[in-house]
C-alpha cells in the first residue's frame, strides 16, 4: 500500500512539475533550440534575452504597471468595503436574518458568471466613454474581490474576542476610536493575508481585462500573455517568459499566505492546519 502511494506520488510529481520546468526552460532558450526537432530537453544555453525582449521590447512593463494599479486598487477598496460589511455583521447588534441575507448576497457574487456582467458593462462604459480605461477594471476587480475579502474579514473578526474592544469602550473611547486603536492592530496579520489573496485573485483575472481594454494604456499583464499566443507564428521563448512572470507573482504571494488560501476559497468551510 505504501509503495503504491509513493509510486503514484512520484508520477504525479512529474505530471505537475514537468510543465513548469518546460515553461521556465523554454523562457531561457535561444531561438536556435526551436529549429531542432524534437527540441532538446535541456536548453542548449541559458539566456535572459526573451525576458528583456518581452518586458522592454514589447513594453510589457507598462502592462505590469497597469496590473499593479488595478490589483492594488482592488485590494484597498475591497478591504475597505469588505470591512464596512464584516464589522457591523460581527460586532454590532443586527437581526440574524439581515446578517445572513447580506453575507449570502455578497457570497452570491462568487457564483455570478463574469460573462453575464461583462456584456452590459461593456455597453455601459462605452457610452460613458470609459472603455479601455483602467478605472473600470478597478471597479470590477473590487466588486469581484468582495466575496473573498468580506468573508475572510468576517472569519478573522469572529476570532477576536469582544472583550478587547469593550474594555476600551468602557474607558470612554468611541466605537470609531476603539476600532482604529484596538481592533485594527489586532487584525494586522489578517489584513495582510486578505490583501495578499485579494491581490493574487485580481492578478489572475482575465475576461474583464480581455474584453474591456484595447491598448497597452490599460491592458493587464495576463492580457499581454494571451496576446503572444497567436494562431500562426508563436515566438515560444517570449510567450514562455511572459507566462513565467505572470505565474510567479501569485505563486510566491500565495505560498507566503498558504495557510489561508483553501479556507478563503471555500469561505471558511475548510479549516486548515498546513
Amino acid at each position: 500500500m505504501r509503495t503504491v502511494g509513493v509510486v503514484v506520488l512520484a508520477l504525479l510529481a512529474v505530471v505537475y512539475l514537468f510543465p513548469f520546468y518546460w515553461m521556465v526552460t523554454t523562457a531561457v532558450r535561444p531561438l536556435a533550440d526551436f529549429y531542432q526537432f524534437p527540441a532538446p530537453i535541456f536548453p542548449s544555453e541559458v539566456t535572459l534575452e526573451p525576458f528583456s525582449s518581452v518586458m522592454i521590447g514589447r513594453q510589457f512593463v507598462t502592462l505590469l504597471r497597469n496590473s499593479l494599479i488595478a490589483c492594488l486598487g482592488a485590494v484597498v477598496f475591497g478591504i475597505a468595503i469588505g470591512m464596512l460589511i464584516a464589522y457591523p455583521v460581527t460586532r454590532l447588534p443586527v437581526p440574524p436574518a439581515f446578517r445572513r441575507g447580506l453575507l449570502n448576497w455578497i457570497l452570491s457574487l462568487r457564483f455570478l458568471p463574469p460573462i453575464v456582467v461583462v456584456i452590459p458593462f461593456f455597453d455601459i462604459i462605452r457610452r460613458l466613454g470609459l472603455y479601455d480605461a483602467l478605472g473600470s477594471l478597478v471597479l470590477l476587480y473590487t466588486v469581484f474581490s468582495l466575496p473573498f475579502a468580506t468573508w475572510m474579514l468576517r472569519g478573522f473578526l469572529l476570532e477576536v474576542p469582544l472583550e478587547i474592544e469593550e474594555a476600551a469602550l468602557i474607558d470612554g473611547a468611541s466605537r470609531l476610536r476603539a476600532f482604529f486603536t484596538v481592533l485594527l492592530p489586532q487584525l494586522a496579520p489578517a489584513l495582510l493575508a486578505t490583501a495578499v489573496i485579494t491581490f493574487a485573485l485580481a492578478w489572475s483575472e482575465f475576461m474583464f481585462g480581455f474584453i474591456l481594454t484595447a491598448t497597452q494604456r490599460s491592458q493587464t499583464f495576463p492580457i499581454g500573455v494571451a496576446s503572444l499566443v497567436t494562431q500562426f507564428q508563436i515566438i515560444w521563448n517570449e510567450m514562455a517568459a511572459a507566462g513565467t512572470v505572470a505565474a510567479i507573482v501569485p505563486i510566491l504571494l500565495l505560498l507566503f499566505a498558504r495557510r489561508y488560501v483553501v479556507t478563503a476559497l471555500t469561505f471558511g468551510a475548510v479549516r486548515e492546519k498546513a
Binding site: 504525479l12 518546460w22 515553461m23 489572475s204 500573455v225 494571451a226 499566443v229 514562455a240 500565495l254
Partner: peptide, 20 residues
C-alpha cells in the same frame, strides 16, 4: 506545496503551458 502551486497559477498561464 506540489498541489498548491498549479491551483494558484493564473488560468491563462495554464493555457500557455498546455500550448507548450
Amino acid at each position: 506545496v506540489l498541489f498548491f502551486i498549479p491551483m494558484v497559477t493564473p488560468p491563462v498561464v495554464a493555457g500557455v503551458i498546455a500550448r507548450l
